[in-house]
Design a protein around this nucleic acid. Structure first.
Length: 290
DNA sequence: AGCCAGGACAAGT
DNA sequence: ACTTGTCATGGC
């Protein structure tokens, strides 16, 4: 069956290609297909709605939560607009929504992301899912997808992200086929700490951002940046503020005294507008010629 | 061919 | 407390 979500500040391309996730792929007709929470899904968008194709009706609340349908991004953008730089960045990608991704998947994905480029990150994650994940249920992905020809490419996208339990006891040698490089042993340490309970991913929701960050950083290969990506993109802690090289550059050049008041409490969302802007504009620095 | 990638870490100032 | 070299791999 097809279901619709309101398209208020929700653009598929902006949401899926802004660097917060790695498993949604654009199809030739502009729709997107991917796997999350062990479920396969294809989405398309019209002028007035986002359409979920072939979703199980029982899963609708899960998808609404995943796509963060309860957050009012229009209100956030209005708040940010008190700052001219932030206003311009948000106007550029007003359809970004911060997903509520699965914690373990997000943790492993952003461990892989360090000192790496997005196409290769996706490739490593694809190989991880193919090697250790389960085939996803969900029927023919072409069902209900309209007249698109040839079906949707499912190369690697049809496997679930493996759980920590599934990866129990994994060694860097086992991960060699992923070609993850020096990150392989980081992945193993994360798996070990999650399975042993040294890091309780389910308990992080109820901790403050600072407390949860400290727990995540006990994992080898998890520093401030990776931890904040997990806090923001999985736990929806909007005050987490991932600082990659681009954001650091923005901060030193445009906000030497820190983000403006209007961003406080939602720095993570502000960060995503800024990050997406500089990436889409070839590193062009935001100018404010009013 | 060479630079760099949504960094983290250890060693050296 | 800050700076630098190193880590494995491959995209562009």
């Amino acid at each position: 069956m097809d279901y619709e979500l309101k398209k208020n500040n929700f653009d598929l391309k902006q949401t899926f290609l802004c660097g917060q996730c790695f498993r949604w792929k654009e199809n030739a007709d502009g729709s997107f297909s991917g796997v999350a929470m062990g479920r396969r899904l294809t989405l398309s968008q019209r002028a007035d709605a986002i359409v979920l194709h072939g979703a199980n009706p029982a899963d609708l609340p899960l998808w609404e939560r995943y796509f963060d349908m309860d957050t009012d991004y229009g209100a956030l953008i209005e708040r940010f607009s008190a700052d001219p730089i932030l206003r311009r960045a948000a106007e550029c990608s007003p359809g970004i929504r911060i997903l509520r991704q699965e914690p373990f998947e997000t943790l492993i994905s952003f461990i892989i992301s360090q000192n790496n480029n997005i196409p290769r990150i996706s490739g490593i994650i694809t190989r991880l899912c193919e090697a250790f994940g389960d085939p996803t249920v969900g029927g023919d992905p072409c069902d209900g997808c309209g007249p698109s020809v040839g079906g949707y490419p499912l190369d690697g996208g049809e496997y679930s992200f493996p759980s920590a339990q599934r990866l129990r006891g994994i060694t860097p040698e086992d991960l060699a086929p992923l070609r993850a490089g020096f990150r392989a042993r980081y992945i193993c340490d994360a798996v070990e700490k999650v399975n042993s309970g040294a890091v309780d991913l389910e308990a992080l929701c109820s901790l403050s951002t600072d407390e949860a960050r400290a727990v995540l950083k006990t994992i080898t290969g998890v520093g401030d940046k990776v931890a904040d990506c997990v806090l923001l993109f999985a736990y929806h802690k909007l005050d987490a503020f991932p600082r990659d090289v681009w954001v650091k550059r923005i901060m030193s050049e445009l906000y030497p005294n820190g983000l403006p008041e209007c961003a406080l409490g939602a720095q993570g969302v502000a960060q995503q507008y800024l990050f997406d802007y500089v990436r889409n504009n070839n590193g062009l620095v935001l100018e404010t010629n009013a």
